[in-house]
Simulated scan of single mutants.
Amino acid sequence: MSSTTRPAVSIVIPTHTEDRWDSLVRTVACARSQNFAPAEVIVVVDHNPELYRRVRRDLAGVTVLENAYAKGVSGNRNTGAFHAQTSVVAFLDDDVIADPDWLGRLVEPFADPRVVGSGGAISPAWEFERPRWMPDEFLWAVGGSYTGMPTRTAPIRNVWSASMVVRRETFVAVGGFRVGFGKLGDRNRPEDTELCLRMSALDGGHWMYVPEAVIRHEVPASRSTFNWFLHRCYAEGRGKVQMAGLTERGDTLATERAYIWSLPRAVVRNLGAALRGRGVDHALRAGGVLAGVAAAGVGTVVETVAARRTPRTAQLEAAR
């Protein structure tokens, strides 16, 4: 798709705390300097008046909005996307750096009218060193692309909102991200996956994964601990059960089941590498896989039991 036929795109960047000010400034700078220039960069502040005033004062050349919905990143993103006037809307988190051709590559799949959205590869940018026990298959736990994802541009069930582009017409038709279902405090529910499922289901459209469209996602030291890893996997197990409870589709968790069945191979591969003298790190990563599966499994059981005790209407109401 040539630059003359690409649709105009707005980039929405949600933010909520001044603790990420330096990261936000970098994210805005890389958004504005994309080789395929966005029509508008929109920063949306989540119920933080001081930060809102600072963004308006210190970040020139961007549109600044306040979250028009309940506190949380889902409402933050919706505020920006509903404000945008372009036919395509991109989302970036406020702690990422996008390659200069990130936006142009993610817009290319929209030449196919059946494409409702796209997403790119996410490379973890560790504050310190990557933990020796962190398995490639669990990099999603720190917001990164993981082993098993496509290595070439290909259809995919869902992408992540840290690096996401949507067809605005479809996004608006499904009501955007589900407000109340997402990341807030210690809750970590997959609002991006849930959105992808609804957008695909609307008219049979599909999502595309573009691994050449790369962002680097900051991973602070606090998210590099084994305890944080276990908590994140536990939350993921609970969140996926909650997500499944919001839809009537029987295949909602088919991707997760296929992923789980791939993990024994990861354990065997890492243990084999350790036994062949390729380093103790491989043995540690095999243990990381087992620990991650166990933590997610516990979360799944806990949430399944809780869901059986809660009527479906109450589940839907709680997610709003």
Rank of each mutant, 00 (worst) to 15 (best):
V219P: 01
V241H: 02
R216I: 01
E218L: 07
R198L: 01
A201H: 04
T247V: 03
E248N: 07
Q242I: 00
H231I: 05
L202A: 05
H206S: 04
L246P: 01
R198F: 05
F226W: 11
H206R: 01
P190D: 07
Q242V: 01
H231W: 14
R223Q: 12
L202R: 07
D203N: 11
E236T: 12
Y234W: 08
I215T: 03
G185W: 08
G250C: 13
R189M: 02
R249Y: 03
H231P: 02
N188M: 15
E212S: 15
L230T: 02
G245V: 01
G204M: 06
V214M: 11
N188K: 06
N227G: 11
R189V: 05
N188G: 02
R216P: 06
R187K: 09
G205Q: 08
S222E: 12
A213H: 12
W228M: 09
D203G: 05
R249V: 00
A201Q: 08
R216C: 13
R198A: 07
P211D: 11
R249D: 08
A201D: 09
W228A: 00
E248L: 13
E218F: 05
E194D: 09
D203E: 12
M208L: 11
E236Q: 07
G205Y: 07
H217G: 00
G237Q: 02
S200K: 15
Y234H: 03
T225Q: 00
G250E: 03
V210G: 14
E191I: 02
D186H: 14
G250R: 14
H206T: 03
T247I: 05
G204N: 10
M199E: 12
P211M: 15
R198P: 04
G245M: 03
S224Q: 13
V210M: 08
L246F: 05
S200L: 10
I215S: 04
G250T: 13
Y234E: 03
H217W: 07
L195Q: 04
D192P: 03
E191C: 11
V241P: 00
Y234N: 02
E218N: 05
G250N: 06
R187C: 07
I215N: 05
H231T: 10
S200F: 04
A213D: 08
T247P: 00
P220D: 04
G204C: 15
T225N: 05
I215P: 09
F226S: 15
G204P: 04
